[in-house]
Nucleic acid binder design. Structure first.
Lengths: 112, 112
DNA sequence: TGAACATATTCGGATATGTGAATGCTTGCA
DNA sequence: TGCAAGCATTCACATATCCGAATATGTTCA
């Protein structure tokens, strides 16, 4: 695997790895949304939401569509959601393993 | 999706999102390896390799097995590789899209 | 035109992260 | 024992990232 590739790859991963941006992607998971809808759903400030949306846009993770004064955002590639879900599974299995072996490093509730 | 979950999730993603750690995971992709093998394969310093391995270990991404003075590292959950590959696909498709579309940049608004 | 609304950008300071250098542990073996 | 190999940790500092506040841009409609 070439070094350059790891660089681009980790760049994209870093873009996806922010908690706030993940909350945004969660809001966009099933349908496109305007900025104000995302603001309402995530509870983040408008400016901060816009900042994170700009980062996602620059990385090509989301695309935009303007309608009047509103801008609709949508996830460009559904594989991003698949990757998100895979990591969710890893997380749950890791937590399950930790509960089985030793004490409580992470969250104590084993629910979905 | 609870807020806590996004936090844990992004924590794990951040752990995976470092270029150096990805190079390490690349070295561990198909088989377990000792630290010195990883050092040789990635070209990183021993200390820095160990630093990143410690982070991966703390996140539960890799597990260790000692044999004499050597420590073997392996990826704990193959889904991590699957997620890595999914992001690779997204990356390639994004690059392909950018080449296909007219503009060289990112914004789809031609007027100004 | 200008006012009102929706969204985007810039700036500055706080916090987090990554790094090399130096050093500390284990383990095996003479 | 003591020493060397293999690995882990700590420290100090540079860089990167994040966020709120303020402000700018862009669009619609009277």
């Amino acid at each position: 695997m070439p070094k350059d590739f790891y660089c681009l790859h980790s760049e994209l991963c870093k873009t996806l790895a922010s908690e706030k941006r993940q909350r945004i992607l969660g809001a966009l998971r099933d349908q496109e949304r305007t900025v104000s809808e995302i603001v309402a759903e995530t509870g983040m400030s408008q400016a901060n939401t816009s900042q994170h949306l700009a980062i996602l846009r620059a990385a090509g993770v989301v695309r935009t569509r303007r309608e009047g004064t509103r801008v609709y955002y949508a996830i460009t590639n559904p594989k991003i959601i698949q990757a998100f879900d895979l990591i969710s599974e890893v997380l749950q299995e890791t937590i399950a393993d930790e509960n089985r072996t030793v004490g409580d490093a992470l969250s104590p509730s084993p629910e979905q």
